[in-house]
Design a protein around this nucleic acid. Structure first.
Lengths: 348, 348
DNA sequence: GTGAAAGCGCTAACAG
DNA sequence: CTGTTAGCGCTTTCAC
């Protein structure tokens, strides 16, 4: 597990002696002004004369002063931190979401506290308590399914909240959602329009993935199609799970001609497995994924999928929160539905 | 970009009226004790009589009290937050690192502040100032390459620091590193042992990736091999970049027989492109990636790569920081080298 | 086992 | 434009 240690240890290891960190009064004394003036130089420089500001800045630089935002936050009642809760960042969609959200918030001076809630039913209220105890100025939360207790904690925190990803419930506050039912329906109609009659799905068992595939199945049945296989695998989705699921389907009496997967990883796995078995794609089996990961565009054959921009969602969410936080711009109280579109490639 | 808004807006939207949040004195009054006793019930329950504790807990539950950790942190001078800086989380290695680190720290009561530094040379000192201003109790930082100013800021923060990923410099404090040079050498010897004589590399232009591929090239040259191509693509690595890079190489006079890529994404792209061109793998071209992403094991052909456990690094780093923070366990001042190994699959 | 006093480092609010 | 005063909500310290 570990290799041998460095035979030539560095000389300057170990942190500095924890001498008292420099604080605002130190800067004030050195600059010959009141602490409040130092605060102004940092936060509202317009209200300080250039000469004074210069003196203060020199003192700050000389002492290497880093303002204690914790203390400032306690006083101003704004922590300039926002909490973000997502199930995982191992998934490209959430990684993109967090990346763009974090970037957008940082530009505005907000630091993101990241919490990974996982897919299991671990204690979400404890997680929220840990987060809300740090008094974030706002909250981004993905994957909803709040318990009543969680719902109440969030409401009582009295901060702007953006829920992301889901669309079909009563939002706590703001919502940047995604209509998973419509995805299922549109993919169904896409396949039906190409004349397919026997369908299958492979889905992770997280609620939103299931909504997509179950709506898909319902839609094809409603149109007279038959669903010959509905595999469900434990979240999170993986390539291997897609391979295994397709393998399980190939034994069946009736082979599907069109397959909808709840994730591009599953789709890639299914395609890989199908080719192993000599199944012609798309002639014998058409496949559509979900997510439009790079894999779907860059693998061979590039495969059809549903595009949904995780990073776009992050930007929109950040915009919503910032306009609440700064009081500028139109207040966006209407739920926003993220657009999606089917990206047709070589597997359909 | 946005679909039409929800035609049936929810009734309970908008946050609660920001009435004064409940604080420790509210709980104390309701429970009929001093604020300090409430604090003890929360932090050191052993030092409170069971009866008193029960009364206090009832009051906490009744009021929905969530302790303000910001205020507590200011007073106790421990924020119970740790800062983490990584270039990106779009990369499976860093995603795994952050995921495991975040989990381990949360179990110990620490909240992670995530910062994404990107690969460009954006202002790292500003980023550090934003982070250190929140007075984290510890710092995890990946990808080093500190400016003198950044180095000094970190040192003066006086907190435990784990640097991760690199190995070959003077560490600030603790180090969970990775010997990128040895990776290049070992892959070179692996290929040389199979009788290859003409080599190529595809590398992202981030410093560590370059170290791996350049050391590889040097090692094969030292052994009498020739390097017929060294493609460098801008970080981050993508499948498409791997495809394009290989395409560029195929036009050359001398075709390589063995290819080392600085990332599995590049390797997958190169393999995909090679097969498109009818190149037999591994007979005409052997390929080795880096990272052991799921893709390398689950695609067809599964490809040879170098395994390095991002999640393991996160756990080790968390362990190091926690033992400093709690003062328990052996102090680990020796740099730790993460192990790696070549995982041989169907492309060599 | 419990409480009272003092203060963490900063900023809001008000003077001047 | 600059300074003073009074906390923010909690924990430290010391007393009982």
């Amino acid at each position: 597990m570990l290799n041998e240690p460095d035979p030539n240890p560095a000389p300057n290891r170990g942190p500095e002696r924890a001498r008292a960190p420099v604080k605002i009064t130190d800067v004030a004394i050195l600059a010959g002004v009141a602490p409040m003036t130092v605060s102004r130089v940092i936060n509202t420089p317009d209200r300080v004369s250039p000469g004074t500001a210069a003196k203060v800045r020199a003192a700050i630089a000389q002492l290497g002063y880093v303002p204690n935002l914790i203390a400032g936050g306690l006083s101003s009642r704004r922590s300039r931190m926002v909490a973000a809760v997502v199930p995982t960042i191992a998934h490209p969609m959430f990684a993109g979401l967090i990346q763009s959200f974090t970037d957008a918030m940082r530009v505005a001076g907000y630091q993101v506290m990241l919490s990974l809630s996982g897919y299991g039913d671990n204690d979400k209220e404890a997680l929220l308590r840990a987060l809300l105890g740090r008094r974030p100025d706002a909250l981004l939360i993905a994957g909803a399914a709040h318990t009543p207790g969680a719902f109440q904690m969030i409401s009582e925190a009295g901060i702007p909240v953006v829920e992301i990803w889901d669309v079909s419930r009563r939002p706590i506050d703001m919502l940047v959602g995604f209509d998973h039912e419509r995805v299922g329906e549109e993919v169904a109609h896409f396949f039906l329009g190409k004349g397919h009659t026997r369908f299958a799905t492979i889905s992770a068992d997280d609620p939103r993935a299931l909504v997509r595939t179950e709506t898909f199945a319902a839609a094809v049945r409603a149109a007279g199609g038959t669903v010959v296989g509905e595999a469900v695998i434990p979240a999170p989705s993986t390539i291997q799970a897609g391979r295994a699921a397709l393998r399980g389907m190939l034994g069946g009496l009736e082979a599907p001609t069109a397959l909808f997967c709840s994730s591009d990883l599953l789709a890639f796995g299914a395609i890989t497995e199908a080719r192993q078995h000599g199944l012609a794609i798309p002639n014998h089996l058409a496949v559509c994924g979900f997510g439009n990961f790079e894999l779907s565009a860059a693998s061979e054959p590039a495969f059809t999928t549903v595009n949904v921009e995780g990073s776009e969602a992050g930007e929109i969410a950040a915009g919503f929160l910032l306009q609440r936080l700064t009081g500028n711009g139109p207040r966006t109280d209407e739920p926003v539905h993220l657009a999606f579109r089917i990206v047709e490639r070589g597997t359909t």
